[in-house]
Write a protein that binds this DNA or RNA. Structure first.
Length: 631
RNA sequence: GCCGGUGUGGCUCAGAGGUAGAGCAGCGCACUCGUAAUGCGCAGGUCAACAGUUCGAAUCUGUUCACCGGCUCCA
């Protein structure tokens, strides 16, 4: 007799051949949402026949695990449809991912975006017909024979480190797959194919490029609709579109990857930088500026020539090779070395808003997020080895203040360890990695480990901010460097009167000021908070006769370092307000006869609407209540 | 860099071998207006670049460039 349990329920079966679905029914767990099972903690098909006792759970379509299975099965359904429409196609891998699924296909012929509806229709046909899905387990040899005409599956099977594999069949289509899957395709209703792209087989750029088709599936039609709505919302927040609409920056064929910042974009960037400077001065940083172009020899010495050359732009001056700097560290080191340093000078925190150039492959450029020239809000801290934890902790506090308190971001932290292409000994790396780990653990910071993703000179802590579509962007980083100080003979005189080598900490908060601005544009959907807004106040005269008064007001604002504009067009009030709203300007001041006479302003706030008339002093008081980290 | 797609006035887009179109923005004129689009008029493009096919190319072909979606890489 077999015994099945679920929490306090129990079912005893006389049969030694019972499917999990039957058990789930017997336990009273079945309903329409059930699409898979869990047996002793292992996800399984409903059709799986069990011959031992155990713990049983039903997986429903609306659970995270169920949704993943649904999407995975939808990927298979898509593959079957593609096989029908493009016979002879081969399939690579087709997993469920964060918001859907994809399948990499070596298509017999070509598939374009226009073909997606056709494939979708075929999928609905197959699902409507209730195509059954069945699993068979076979040995690797049997599987190799089964897939002998499929180079991709053959490669996958060969690499699998298990004696047996499973194959899922639905109609004429069969796929190597761990499963589980829905028991028949009619369970799949709410799906959509989204886009098409190239993807290298097994993610290796030396391999053949397959056609990747992205899609998604949800438990209910409403969730699918909501997802599509969210994608549209994300499109509206796209910083490239808003950058154009709000006149912040532009990109030109004449300088791919080199953004042009317009006056309004610079107003935002300068405000960010002003804030950044203040916070750094408060925390004991001083600022330097080092040259854009430096001798090749410097980069050889720093190791960049060996480890970073393909990203560097080179130039020639008087028949000598120079490099346009891709990083600020060597310049900082030269500044440090201009004097003999004492342990009393440490930690020495040299900050630099350095503009660095890096050659990025043409296909990766993306608005402000991925460019070939950007401003790092860099700082290099020279420190006694015993002070690492303390200093790293202080930087993490600074990061938290910026990200959470000022900008309201969620972020995650990653510890990246030694990469293949790196300098230094294992001992140095272990020491450096342990120092970072201790800093993270002593501050109870949750983190994940990203093996092999450190810089070539040391391990690092990375801060990833999440944007409105759930993409994450690496912004801050804290990198320990036990290499460069040695390479450049960087020293300080210790308390003992002897020469010592300091540890170098590289760190950024914004990362790239340009990228950070891009993230902020999307984060705020272009509606910058008052303190950052490129135009804080729009003065709207009702008629031309109020222009003089408007100019008077603007002068008052200029004296207070407030950014204001006057709408001088001879348009109707409604039009001027509409345009100011669309520019997402925080405050609109309507001035007409009444205001001019009483020396007041009619205040309209972009989201609260009309706040009524008040004196200039009263308005200034309203402004003083706005969040402003610069005060 | 690779795969696929797209390049038409400042912006959004129509036109698919036979003398370049619309709306918005701009400019001019009228209106001088009270909280999300006043009306009329004018001007604006070697149709991404280069080569080819053709009597004739924005339209067909090729090459290049840029952009978009991904892959690889990354702040």
């Amino acid at each position: 007799m077999l015994q099945f349990k679920h929490e306090d329920r129990q079912y005893n079966s006389d049969s030694e051949n019972i499917t999990l679905h039957e058990v789930i029914k017997a336990l009273g767990l079945d309903n329409k949402k059930v699409i898979a099972a869990k047996f002793n903690g292992e996800l399984s098909d409903l059709s799986r026949i069990v011959s031992t006792s155990g713990e049983v759970d039903a997986i429903t379509i609306d659970s995270p695990e169920g949704l993943e299975i649904l999407r995975h099965s939808t990927a298979h359904l898509m593959a079957q449809a593609i096989l029908r429409l493009y016979p002879g196609s081969h399939f690579g891998v087709g997993p469920a991912i964060k918001d859907g699924f994809y399948y990499d296909v070596d298509v017999a012929g070509t598939i374009t975006e226009d073909d997606l509806p056709k494939i979708e229709a075929e999928m609905r046909k197959i699902a409507g017909a209730g195509e059954k899905v069945s699993r068979s387990d076979m040995t690797k040899d049997e599987a190799l024979k089964f897939f002998q005409n499929d180079p991709y599956k053959t490669e996958l099977i060969t690499d699998i480190d298990a004696p047996t594999v499973s194959v899922y069949k639905q109609g004429e289509y069969a796929d190597l797959c761990r499963g589980p899957h829905v028991s028949d395709a009619s369970k799949i209703h709410n799906f959509k194919l989204l886009s098409i792209a190239g993807a290298y087989w097994r993610g290796d750029e030396h391999n053949k490029m397959l056609t990747r088709i992205y899609g998604t599936a949800f438990a209910t039609p409403d969730e699918l609709k909501e997802y599509i709505r969210r994608m549209e919302e994300a499109k509206l927040r796209d910083h490239r579109k808003l950058g154009k609409d709000l006149d912040l920056f532009s990109l030109h064929e004449e300088g791919p990857g080199f953004p042009f910042f317009h006056p309004k974009g610079m107003a935002v960037m300068n405000t960010l930088i002003e804030f950044w400077r203040r916070e750094h001065i408060k925390r004991g940083y001083t600022e330097i500026k080092t040259p854009q172009i430096l001798d090749r020899e410097l980069w050889v010495r720093s190791g960049h020539w060996d480890h970073y050359r393909e990203n560097m732009y080179l130039t020639e001056i008087d028949e000598k090779t120079y490099a346009i700097k891709p990083m600020n560290c060597p310049g900082s080191i030269l500044v440090y070395k201009t004097q003999l340093r004492s342990y009393r000078d440490l930690p020495m925190r040299l900050a630099e808003l350095g503009c660095v150039h890096r050659h990025e492959k043409s296909g990766v450029l993306h608005g402000l997020m991925r460019v070939r020239c950007f401003t790092q809000d860099d700082a290099h801290t020279y420190i006694e080895p015993s002070k690492i934890r303390e200093e790293v902790t202080a930087i993490m506090e600074l990061d938290k203040y910026f990200y959470t308190n000022v900008f309201g971001f969620k972020y995650t932290v990653e510890l990246s360890t030694r990469p293949d292409d790196s300098m230094g000994t294992d001992e140095q790396w272990n020491e450096a990695e342990n120092a970072l780990r201790e800093a993270l653990e002593s501050t109870n910071t949750p983190y994940t480990i990203n093996p092999g993703d450190g810089a070539f000179y040391g391990p690092k802590i990375d801060f990833h901010l999440e944007d409105c579509i759930g993409r994450t962007w690496q912004c801050g980083t804290i990198q320990l460097d036990f290499q460069l100080p040695g390479r450049f003979d960087v020293t300080y005189i210790g308390e003992d009167g002897a020469e010592h080598t300091p540890v170098l900490i590289h760190r950024v908060v914004f990362g790239s000021v340009e990228r950070f601005m891009g993230i902020l544009i999307e984060h705020y959907a272009g509606a910058f908070p008052y303190w950052l807004a490129p135009v804080q106040i729009k003065i709207i005269p009702i008629a031309d006769s109020h222009l003089d008064y408007a100019r008077e007001l603007q002068n008052a604002f200029m004296n207070q370092n407030l950014r204001s504009e006057i709408d001088t067009r001879s348009e109707k009030l409604g039009r001027k307000i509409r345009d100011a709203q669309m520019q997402k300007i925080p405050y609109m001041l309507v001035v007409g006869d009444k205001e001019k006479e009483n020396h007041t302003v009619g205040v309209r706030e972009r989201s609260k609407g009309d706040l009524g008339s008040m004196s200039l002093d009263e308005f200034m008081n309203v402004l003083s209540k706005e969040f402003n980290p610069l005060r």
